[in-house]
Simulated assay, not measured.
Amino acid sequence: MEFKGSKAYDEEAFFQQFMKRRNRTDSPNLRIEKPAILQLIGNPEGFSVLDLGCGDASLGLDLLEKGCSSYLGIEGSNKMFEEAIQLLEASKGKMELSSMEDYSYPPEAFDLAVSELAIHYVEDMETLFQSIFQTLKPGGRLVFSVQHPLLTSSFKSSESGESRSSWIVDDYFYSGKRVENWMGEQVVKYHRSTGEYFSALANAGFKIESLTEPKPDPEQFSNPEEYKRRMRIPLFLLFSCVKGEDFIG
């Protein structure tokens, strides 16, 4: 059975395995991606924040603790939504159970839109970026991460489900659906080249401020061998974009 979007996380075994995997020592999500996205976001003090595909809203809690004025997390998985509600219970953060595709996107409502490792689950990326653009205030920013296109490219690699010690980069310019054998489930993702992400953002009206492939920091890793392994290929691609004043019309 193929799972689209966040629906795989509602499978109990998958959910438990994912949470254990993500929170393990030297998790690349925690040691590479999260420091990189927080650096791109910078100081969120006073910002109204929209978090798309927020998972358990751990990024939201960080932003609230750093002084953002409001936080709304959008999450399509029931289990992740419940985790987020519990995590945000003592904060002013709010949640909405919805996919990114189905969210209403009120016009000019947010200073900052963020998304961690979720947009590669969305089939219609162009419409999504247009929706995000119109929901940001003038001068608002979009900061997001995706799985690096070098990892999503190969049909063969995604089918194997094996922990990789070497990587196949193939089928790079064949954009579209990939079905990855991930933690025992068939999870649907969508591959795009780096250039396609850039073009879709520009076509939506965004000015791209930064594009980064975060490099592992040895001080973030307790295991030197795991650090060396993570130095071999980029795992994440991050963008920082702005809705300029000149795009109002």
Rank of each mutant, 00 (worst) to 15 (best):
Y174H: 09
S175P: 06
S175K: 09
S175T: 07
G176Y: 08
G176N: 05
K177D: 07
V179K: 03
W182M: 00
W182G: 02
M183G: 00
G184T: 01
E185D: 02
E185F: 07
Q186A: 01
Q186H: 06
Q186Y: 05
V187R: 04
V187F: 04
V188L: 07
K189W: 10
Y190S: 02
Y190L: 10
H191A: 06
H191W: 11
H191N: 04
S193M: 12
G195S: 10
G195H: 10
E196Q: 14
E196N: 03
E196R: 04
Y197M: 04
S199G: 07
A200C: 12
A202S: 14
A202E: 15
A204L: 06
A204D: 03
G205V: 08
G205R: 06
G205I: 05
F206G: 05
F206E: 10
F206A: 12
I208P: 09
E209F: 12
E209D: 15
S210H: 13
L211I: 15
L211K: 13
T212V: 15
T212I: 14
T212W: 07
E213Y: 02
E213I: 01
P214N: 04
P214E: 02
K215C: 00
P216G: 06
P216H: 01
D217Q: 11
D217V: 05
P218S: 14
P218A: 11
E219Y: 10
F221D: 04
F221N: 09
F221Y: 09
S222Y: 01
S222M: 03
S222K: 12
S222L: 08
P224K: 09
E225G: 07
Y227H: 12
K228M: 11
R229I: 09
R230K: 11
R230L: 10
R230M: 09
M231R: 15
R232S: 15
I233K: 09
L235K: 07
F236Q: 06
F236R: 05
L237C: 05
L237R: 00
L237F: 02
L237I: 01
L237M: 08
L238I: 06
F239Q: 02
S240I: 08
V242Y: 08
V242C: 10
K243I: 04
G244Y: 03
G244N: 14
